[in-house]
Structure formats: C-alpha cells, structure tokens
Design a protein around this nucleic acid. Structure first.
Lengths: 157, 157
DNA sequence: ATTGAAAGTAGATATTA
DNA sequence: TAATATCTACTTTCAAT
C-alpha cells in the first residue's frame, strides 16, 4: 500500500465506475498498472466491493430508524447478529459497548412498516428491549473518509 | 420505474461495476437498452452514485463510534449539520427525533483520535452534550435492502 | 422503448524492460 | 513493478422498428 494505491482507492470511493484508463490518468500510471493494483487491492480485502447508491425515498424506503437492541442475560451475541441479519430491512448492524448489544439501522417504507419491524425485532429470541430513534432526515451518509488515504498515515515533517 | 428498472438497480447495488452487457444478460435486455435506462435512473436521482467499499481497518480506520449530539436551546439544526459536515471523520449524519438533534457515525484510527474528535464535536457552537457509543464490531453495513426493488411495491394476489 | 449495427474505447493478458 | 502490444469485449451513438 503506497501513495498510488491510496490515490486509486480515493478515486474509486468517489466514482466506483471509473475506468482503469481514467484512474491511470488521475494517478499518473498506465491503465494496465492500475488494473493490476486494483486486482491486488481486491484480493487483499482492502476494496471489498462496488455498490450503486440509491436514493431510498425514490424506491419506497422513506423511513429510517436507529434501533438499540438490549439482550437478555442469556443471549449470545453471535446468535443475535445472525437473527438480525435475516431481516432484510436491517441494513447495518453494529455490536456496541454499553448495555445494548447492538445498534442497527433499519430502512422501511412507512411508519406502519417500522412498527411491524420493531415487533419482529422484539420477538427475536434473546432480545429483551429495543430503543428506537427515528431518523428525520439524512444529512449525509457513507461519505468517503480519506483520513490516511490521500496522504500517508505517518505524514510528517 | 418498472420491474426491469428495479432489477437493474438491484444488480447495480450488488455490483456497481457491472457492465451494461452483463446487466442486459441479467435482466433480459440489450446493452443499449440498459444503458438508456441507467442514464434515466441517474438523471432522475434514483441512482445517486457508485462507490468502492473499503475495509476501514485496512486503511487505518479501525475505530468506529456512534455519537448523539445534544444541542443547546438556541442552536439551529442546519448550522449544526453544516459544522458536522466539516469534520472528515464524521462519515454519516442523521437528524433524529428525541432530545438529541443528530446521531453521527464517526470513523477514526485510534481511541486517541476518537477522544480528539469528540473534543472537536463538543467545541462546535450549539453543541451542549455528546453521547458516545463505541462500536466493537461491524457485523454488516449498508447491505442492499431490496424491499420493493426486486418485486413491485404493491405485490400481492 | 427496444434493438442491432458500426465505430471508438476499454478490458484483459502475455511479454518485455 | 510498470509499460507496451494484442486481442477480445464493452460502450456509445444512431437509424429503424
């Protein structure tokens, strides 16, 4: 991982459909060199995928909520995470410090759907309580954070 | 937005670098038709971008936290959101219901960095208190939620 | 709105430096 | 590791349906 890799990564975070030729022009390398570097970054698990970002409200997913999951005393976190992953409306799942085992991000169409989803969450074995925070607006989300990407981690004199 | 558009979107959420030819084979359309449909979906603001997903720990961003931002009585939400957007380590920002104005997701390299970032957050004008939840592990994140994408919104017999 | 053809461009691979 | 050359495949435009 050198400065060129970091530049390539930064460029692909901004535009995941950039061609190798474009990336080459951006970083000052031939397309084939970029191609090889990207392949290595993918193999090494640095780049884990490429995704189109969709405006949720345009596809009928207008309601977002953050839900804290408080487990029962006997619950196993891995079992809980597995059960949470089976609900498609749970988009992200974080194991957290504190008396909640997880915070999940839920995306649904309506508040009725949200009520249904919360019911399903509470019925999962090992879930004692849920605490729901309704998102009123998403100001920004998943923004590229190029701390340590544009510039070397130990960035100097 | 018909079933074909929904299939194209779902495919691009799974693989944002899929070629038009591939997408055409997936959905049963010619590459040029897919090309035109994708262009319209982009123009209509349904697809807002394409991003490479990077494993944060491989690029020196091993610490994630969720931070609730409690505002002072006089704070303006838009000013707060603007100030939050200026910290690169704030990756996502949600305006929420409740006594916190925002919940933000912060990604940094170390707990020392987290402490510094929390200090910066508290020093933002209009911020009364922060409440930090440290993420121990990300079980999954930004998973494609194809509610209403694979199948029509009103889908029932 | 979809297709198929034509021209240009990019991807993928092997070879060489 | 990077570049060049080659072949294959894809993108993009456009006329026709």
């Amino acid at each position: 991982m050198d400065a060129l890799d970091r530049k390539i990564i930064a460029a692909l975070r901004l535009n995941g459909r950039a061609t190798y030729a474009e990336l080459g022009r951006t970083v000052g390398l031939s397309a084939s060199s970029v191609h090889e570097r990207v392949g290595k970054l993918e193999s090494a698990g640095v780049i884990t995928g490429y995704h189109a970002v969709v405006n949720p409200s345009t596809v009928g997913l207008g309601v977002t909520a953050l839900v804290g999951i408080q487990p029962t005393d006997v619950a196993e976190n891995d079992d809980l995470a597995e059960a949470l992953s089976e609900l498609p409306e749970v988009e992200s799942c974080y194991a957290v410090a504190g008396d909640e085992a997880f915070v999940v991000k839920v995306r649904v169409g309506t508040v009725d759907d949200l009520e249904r989803t919360l019911g399903r969450l509470r019925r999962i074995g090992g879930v004692a309580r849920t605490r729901t925070t309704v998102v009123l607006s998403t100001r920004f989300e998943g923004r590229p954070n190029n701390n340590g990407l544009d510039e070397p981690p130990e960035g100097g004199a």
